[in-house]
């Protein structure tokens, strides 16, 4: 704790703290969203559609239109598929908290059952990418972590950073961190291209390759700190900041003590 209080006194403690705060928030969301999704398939399809429509009319139609046809402020949902709904609502991005540049990941508003109902309803409007099943998502078995790393660096790292920590896009948009995201949601993001993210088609990035990417992300996520505090894994900026704060301040502190006359 001593180190923390020393850090806190530095002028530049803000950014470092912010990174810690973001990490903490991220972890909280991870825990919050990792609620077990069980027996959502128990309901019959038609009741799910009806229930989904009800939720839609209550929570989504004010922006997306009564028939999900879209309005000026929100896109049409016809043909976006169940995967898109599952991603957007399941990660808490929808419903949006405010009309900001970008929907942020937060604790989901709806339960997994409600998300399923909503997705079934939207999928009933027009065909679109379906929610990947558990059998498909067996990345531990079907993925290769080394290949996943290469694919991640070619296809993802330019936006999400080399360690999946996210990065800046234009005009205040940003690629969010991919740490602490459910494999299902990562997969859905790749096939649906939410918000600014492009779509990664199954022919150019095969399902096995997608699983490899997920496997690499999970490996990076669970990788313990091999060389000490990770400093946000954002590269030389935080490293330079630490050297200019903790490093040089410690040294100058000792220099002041050294040159002060003993009493």
């Amino acid at each position: 704790m001593k180190r923390l209080s020393r850090l806190r006194r530095h002028r530049a403690a803000g950014p470092v703290l912010l990174i810690f705060a973001l990490f903490t928030i991220g972890t909280t969301f991870q825990v919050a969203s990792a609620v077990n999704q069980e027996n959502a398939t128990v309901q019959s399809r038609s009741t799910a559609i009806a229930e989904g429509k009800e939720i839609f009319l209550r929570g989504c139609s004010s922006c997306h239109g009564l028939n999900a046809e879209g309005q000026e402020i929100a896109p049409s949902l016809i043909g976006v598929g169940a995967a898109s709904v599952d991603f957007q609502v399941g990660t808490g991005r929808m419903p949006m908290a405010d009309m900001s540049q970008q929907a942020v990941r937060k604790a989901p508003v709806y339960s997994p059952e409600e998300v399923h109902a909503l997705a079934t309803y939207v999928a009933s409007l027009a065909p679109g990418p379906a929610v990947p099943g558990d059998e498909l998502l067996n990345y531990e078995r079907d993925g290769s972590v080394a290949e996943g790393g290469q694919l991640f660096r070619t296809n993802c790292a330019m936006c999400h950073n080399f360690a999946g920590q996210g990065g800046a896009l234009t005009q205040g948009k940003y690629a969010p961190t991919v740490m602490g995201v459910q494999p299902k949601h990562i997969y859905e993001a790749m096939i649906t291209g939410p918000q600014a993210m492009p779509v990664f088609s199954d022919k150019t990035l095969t399902p096995e390759e997608k699983l490899s990417i997920i496997k690499w992300i999970k490996s990076a996520e669970s990788e313990p700190q091999l060389g000490g505090v990770a400093l946000g894994r954002v590269g030389p900026v935080t490293e330079g900041l630490l050297a200019w704060t903790l490093g040089i301040v410690l040294l100058i502190g000792v220099a002041v003590w050294l040159a002060a006359k003993a009493r």
């Binding site: 070619t154 492009p198 088609s201 150019t204």
Partner: peptide
């Protein structure tokens, strides 16, 4: 036809 609208490929 391998590429959907909004898709990219390296």
């Amino acid at each position: 036809e391998d590429l959907e609208i909004g898709a990219v490929a390296q």
